[in-house]
């Protein structure tokens, strides 16, 4: 388990990084934290000619309050995002989800940008981006462009990034005050990739009806899934068990899970319903508590 030979460029500017990607014509890979890439190198499942190492680009390591958005630089470590007071207030779903990513040791090194660019449908960060309608900023030879999360994740480990583009930042809309969040994840062992995870954020209006709800599902399709149909069912309703059950069914129907050695597809679909129901119950119990307080 030793990587095949490759060249290494420790980029000192973003332009230099992009130039290298262009020069290597699709055979280079971007190295962020390395938590997914280095094992793939060691297994020789990835054999790039060159690694473009973003480790020296301090300018990509930031969490910035931009009023109605929070912008997070791609090289910000997951652990820094998870423990940021700004993120806790403005985007509570993000730290709640990141706590399920592997273990602290992984999150110390793994970056938010790396996780999103890897586009693993079972990973938590991509699902948060889907739930919160985030935008991904990519920088390539033609400059910067912004990609909606809904368009970014295109398949299993497959995103809208071009081979000569670098994911440089993520912009996430600030959540309104009073938003409560819940993450229900089912993994075989603590820290494993989710078989299925359901992520939810919601607000109740003063009458106790659901003013806004955002739901996404990891591990239930070849991309992170936004549960639009369930959200529509829930919005404007009182969170009764019947409404919640209907939403859970809607989520399950929207899934298109794959089978693997850990679970058949049908089991994952079933889990999506169970976890949705649990997530929503928790969410609205929180919401009622916070409304009462």
């Amino acid at each position: 388990m030793k990587p095949a030979p490759f060249g290494h460029v420790r980029a000192s500017t973003l332009d230099q990084a992009v130039e290298t990607l262009v020069a290597e014509d699709g055979d280079a890979k971007v190295l962020a934290g390395g938590q997914s890439l280095v094992p793939l190198l060691a297994m020789r499942l990835a054999q790039p000619t060159t690694l473009v190492d973003l480790g020296g680009l301090r300018e990509l390591d930031y969490i910035r309050d931009e009023g109605d958005h929070v912008e997070i630089g791609a090289m910000t470590r997951s652990r820094a995002v998870e423990t940021s007071p700004l993120v806790a207030t403005a985007l509570p779903l993000l730290p709640a989800a990141l706590r399920h990513v592997g273990h602290v040791t992984i999150r110390n090194r793994g970056t938010l940008g790396g996780s999103v660019a890897h586009a693993d449908p079972a990973a938590e960060a991509p699902s948060v981006l889907r739930a919160l309608d985030a935008e991904i900023i990519a920088t390539g030879p033609g400059g910067r462009r912004t990609i909606a999360a809904a368009d970014f994740f295109q398949g299993f480990l497959f995103s809208a990034l071009e081979p000569d583009e670098i994911l440089t930042a993520i912009r996430i809309p600030r959540q309104p005050a009073g938003t409560v969040v819940a993450v229900e994840e089912f993994a075989r062992r603590h820290g494993d990739f989710a078989l299925v995870a359901v992520l939810g954020a919601a607000r109740l209006d003063p009458s106790g009806e659901i003013a806004e709800v955002r739901l996404s599902v990891a591990g239930a399709a070849n991309t992170p899934l936004r549960a639009d149909a369930a959200e529509r069912l829930l919005t404007g309703q009182a969170p009764t068990p019947d409404v919640i059950a209907a939403a859970a069914t809607a989520v399950a129907e929207a899934t298109d899970p794959a089978a693997d050695i850990h679970a058949p597809a049908e089991y994952r679909r079933h889990l999506a319903a169970v976890l949705t129901r649990r997530c929503l119950h928790r969410l609205f119990a929180h919401a009622e508590r916070s409304a009462a307080a």
């Binding site: 290494h8 420790r10 190295l31 390395g34 938590q35 280095v38 094992p39 060691a42 690694l51 190492d53 480790g55 652990r79 602290v104 040791t105 992984i106 110390n108 090194r109």
Partner: peptide
Amino acid sequence: RTARSCCTLAVQ
């Protein structure tokens, strides 16, 4: 901070 040294290249 803890790091997995197997998932980190020496150059990193």
